[in-house]
């Protein structure tokens, strides 16, 4: 092993994470699927996150609308408020904010859960008892995170836009129908689809990084805290990096 410089440890982490991801893919395709565990994780990861994400989404839409209003009035395009909030929420703010909240809630819980299982040697015990711990713990969680985040983002977008509708009507007067007509009139498939597709990657990143940090946890109870913490930090950074990649890819493909 090379010296433990920051660069080396970073590269080491990146390599290990890549290996972990390939292992996930390999295990995912192998039979003996843990269906009930997957559904349980979906419930925990998806459904239980909805209140938190709904609340943040609602506040985000409301605040964004109220913050944008003065500038829109300055440019004399107050009537375009639904359109601009719709575009910004659907394209960027909805996916990113939701993914960050998701990383904070799910990434940390996965990291802590797997980390504590690791340090209390439950994972080893599982292996001894004949269950594939990777399949049971990692694959189900990563898959659930990957599939649940897009749904959460869609619902968050809807709640966000409802919040925006309320925000528009605090000062102005726009009917419900007109608001939604204006939002949908200014959205195109190339607004929605790239934003929707990137949320799968966000979810996968949150799940895989949480599992990786937890699965490779050590140094006892202290290590559990550290893996939970670094799971949130790394997955949050990862979300932004993926967002950067996504916008460049859509730009190159001409969907922007």
């Amino acid at each position: 092993m090379a010296k433990a410089t920051p660069l080396n440890s970073f590269l080491d982490q990146a390599g290990s994470l890549s290996k972990f991801s390939f292992r996930f893919l390999w295990q995912w395709f192998k039979p003996r699927y843990e269906g009930s565990e997957f559904l349980r994780q979906c419930y925990v990861i998806g459904y239980n996150s909805l209140p938190l994400i709904g609340l943040t989404g609602f506040i985000m839409g409301l605040v964004l609308t109220m913050q944008l209003r003065p500038s829109m009035i300055e440019y004399g395009v107050e009537s375009q408020l639904p359109a601009i909030v719709g575009i910004s929420v659907v394209r960027e703010i909805g996916p990113v904010i939701t993914a960050l909240i998701f990383a904070g809630k799910i990434g940390s819980s996965i990291g802590a859960e797997l980390g504590s299982m690791k340090v209390t040697e439950q994972i080893d015990a599982m292996q001894v008892s004949g269950t594939n711990p990777f399949k049971y713990l990692v694959v189900s969680r990563v898959l659930a995170a990957t599939l649940m985040l897009p749904i959460l983002v869609i619902l968050s977008d809807a709640i966000s836009l409802y919040g925006s509708y309320i925000g528009v009507n605090i000062r102005g007067n726009t009917s419900f129908n007109l608001f939604w007509t204006q939002v949908f009139d200014n959205l195109a498939f190339y607004d929605v689809l790239p934003a929707f597709i990137k949320t799968f990657f966000f979810g996968f990143a949150v799940g895989i990084i949480g599992c990786f940090k937890g699965y490779n946890s050590n140094k006892g109870t202290e290590g559990v805290g550290r893996s939970a913490n670094s799971a949130v930090v790394v997955s949050s950074i990862m979300i932004f990096i993926l967002d950067l990649l996504a916008v460049q890819i859509t730009d190159v493909l001409g969907f922007n």
């Binding site: 979906c42 998806g46 459904y47 909805l50 659907v90 897009p150 749904i151 959460l152 869609i154 619902l155 977008d157 809807a158 939604w180 949908f184 959205l187 195109a188 498939f189 607004d191 929605v192 929707f196």
Partner: peptide
Amino acid sequence: FVLAGLFCLILLLYMI
């Protein structure tokens, strides 16, 4: 939860 999410997605795509 899942159906609500899918419904919203389909509605969005349909409206567009």
